[in-house]
Amino acid sequence: MKRKLHELAHARAGDKGDTLTLALFAYRDEDYVLLRNQVTAEAVKRHLGHIVQGAVRRFEVPNLHALQFVCERALDTGVTTSLGLDPHGKTLSYALLEMQIET
């Protein structure tokens, strides 16, 4: 069954220059493996490819049951010069949570 990440996980977005960070946390510790297997760097790049112009790197953070995605060239040149309404990309945690995975 396909489910949105929003049902399984919470997320927080952060910004550094033109780099967007997206931290993804399983609500239930046991779902961490599911996230790790399906929410790969490639899958996130596909899902957010219209926003993230550069590479997506993924860090596994098992001590927090979390995955950290570091997305380059994702903020339209950065917070002070972006044309976006949300130049920090703070709303983008919920763009990640729109992603669907098989459960």
């Binding site: 927080r12 952060g14 960070t21 931290a23 860090f59 953070v61 001590n63 927090l64 950290q68």
Partner: peptide, 28 residues
């Protein structure tokens, strides 16, 4: 948890002028 990873571009190597901190071993 959400705040610990906020704006972190490498959880195992968070660089500040003081130190390179490693959050991958943090216990909350």
């Amino acid at each position: 948890k959400e705040q610990l990873l906020y704006e972190v571009t490498d959880p195992g190597g968070y660089i500040t002028p003081d130190v390179v901190a490693d959050f991958s071993t943090v216990s909350l």
